[in-house]
Write a protein that binds this DNA or RNA. Sequence first.
DNA 1: GTTTCTGTTGTCAC
DNA 2: CGTGACAACAGAAA
Length: 263
Amino acid sequence: MPELPDVEGFRKVLESCAKGRVIQRVEVRDAGVLHGVSVRRLRDALEGRRFTEPKRHGKWLLAPTGDGPTLMLHFGMTGRLVCGRPGDAADAHDRVLFTVGGGRQLRYRDQRKLQGLWLAGDDRDVARMLDRQGPDALAVDRAEFEDALSSRRGRVKTVLTDQSVVAGLGNLLADEILWRARLRPTRRAGDLTEDERRRLYTHMRRTLRSAVPTGCVPPRDSWLTGHRDDPVPTCPRCGNPLRRTRMAGRGTVWCPHCQPDGD
DNA sequence: GTTTCTGTTGTCAC
DNA sequence: CGTGACAACAGAAA
């Protein structure tokens, strides 16, 4: 589920649900989602503090607590953040519950537990955890983006989803952006022309901008994403059949007609 | 009923 | 650099 737009949505959930409120109780229902921190230390570090302004970098959500430590959340494929009340029925996949003031409860819910929660003691700690992340896809400027691409030899789809190049794009977004920019995912990133790199940047921004308010990569009819699971996937732009392939173990959908070979 | 495959994640060995 | 395996799990396909 979570790519940049989803995580940005979770950031807003955290903000409206818990920002400025005292963390009264931390209940870990499944310690399997904790990384590098014990149940006790997480509880002791957070209870009594307040969440302050949450941040996001790529697919990471950062929940600082003022002078205290920063809770770092990654959602893997199935994680989400939901806001409810302490008495709400527990979902089978609610892994950690944060009861905060105002009668609210923030829940880290995740079916598959591919990622989870970390605790960073200070800003240097946060920076260390993010040191392999490239610039955020929504914050990177054009020059930096085009620079990062041209120095890469790999295929453009793989490069786009590499978090150390640009942080925040996942499988769906990469396919969507390449389709809009009319670039075949198998093209070598370093072989793109100046014009093609520029197109890629423009469409990355446009795609992110329209996806963020919806909190997901919307499966709209006019988007490629709206058709990737069709029984007979058809390009919403030209009507030709879409092709499904596999790149680096990820399902890849593209339009042979709209996304020409380009050598 | 049971086995196999797929998937919005990241990491690691080859 | 690229691919495949893996991690954990549910739901669909075979």
